[in-house]
């Protein structure tokens, strides 16, 4: 963010410069030093103004990070969440709850399907014996009752499974809320980043003006530390994009 000094400032600067020249050529060093310190002040003032502006916009970005969603109840819920990391913790919590709820319902549904499947298998076998006329009357009466019971069970289990499936559907509503929260956090991160970039540019200017040199070492990426999921893997050769890639890589290593 290279800002041009305004016209007044420029004029003052050239005025001060010629005064300085004058003093130096006249051998008036005490006066020359005074002008130099005035120049310094001008420079510092510009710097402070820039830093002040950046600080204000940073504050503004953080202040603006207040969520406004949906119902009063949701607002109450959200107002307890003061900062971005709390908000992200809320997302983790919501997704965790939704995942667990979904898994509860799936785990409740699976045995119902297994029961129906097992009973249907046994009935099919008995039905086959009936068709082949291998069944005596007492067995048939048993089968008769069993089929009645099976139809009842089938209806009940299907209803339960259907109910569980609709609850699973509803449990996905977290996506709406967490999506909104994440979008807010993303916006904040972007704003903060922009302001930070400006701040870094300012710091760079300060360094140039004052002649400070930093010992900058690029941080080495440690692959042994987990890096989490990779995004935008397409066209990247350092990252696998599917299980097939993993399998190919491992087999090339002799696996």
């Amino acid at each position: 963010m290279e800002k041009k000094p305004d016209f007044g400032e420029q004029e003052r600067l050239s005025e001060q410069a010629s005064t300085l020249m004058e003093h130096v050529s006249n051998g008036n060093y005490a006066e020359a030093m005074k002008v130099i310190s005035e120049l310094n002040e001008t420079r510092d003032r510009t710097l402070y103004q820039e830093v002040g502006k950046l600080t204000r916009s940073l504050h503004e970005a953080i202040r603006r990070f207040a969520i406004d969603i949906g119902t009063v109840q949701q607002q109450e819920e959200m107002s307890k969440i003061a900062d971005a990391s709390d908000r992200l913790a809320y997302v983790v919590d919501m997704t965790n709850k939704a995942a667990n709820k979904t898994m509860d319902l799936v785990e409740a549904s699976m045995p119902l399907a297994v029961d129906i499947r097992n009973e249907a298998g046994e009935l099919k076998e008995a039905w086959g014996r009936l068709r082949r006329r291998e069944m005596d009357p007492s067995e048939f009466r048993e089968l008769y009752k069993r089929i009645d019971k099976f139809f009842l069970e089938l209806t009940q289990n299907s209803d339960k499974v259907y109910g569980n499936l609709s609850e699973i559907l509803l449990a996905q509503d977290f996506q709406d809320l967490t999506g909104q929260v994440i979008q807010k956090v993303t916006t904040l991160v972007r704003e903060v980043e922009e302001n930070l970039v400006n701040l870094v540019a300012m710091a760079g200017k300060v360094d140039r003006l004052t002649g400070i040199q930093h010992d900058m070492k690029a941080e080495q990426e440690d692959i042994m530390k987990g890096q989490g999921p990779q995004m935008n893997t397409e066209g990247r050769s350092d990252v696998v994009s599917s299980q097939d890639d993993v399998d190919d890589l491992l087999s090339s290593l002799g696996f």
Binding site: S237, S241, L249
Partner: peptide, 24 residues
């Protein structure tokens, strides 16, 4: 069973003696 998908990481796991590698 991991989301880690860098080739270097998979090689490192193989070298460390992993028996199988599944990406999430």
């Amino acid at each position: 069973v991991t989301a880690e998908a860098k080739r270097d990481q998979i090689v490192a796991a193989a070298q460390a003696g992993v028996n199988g590698y599944v990406v999430k």
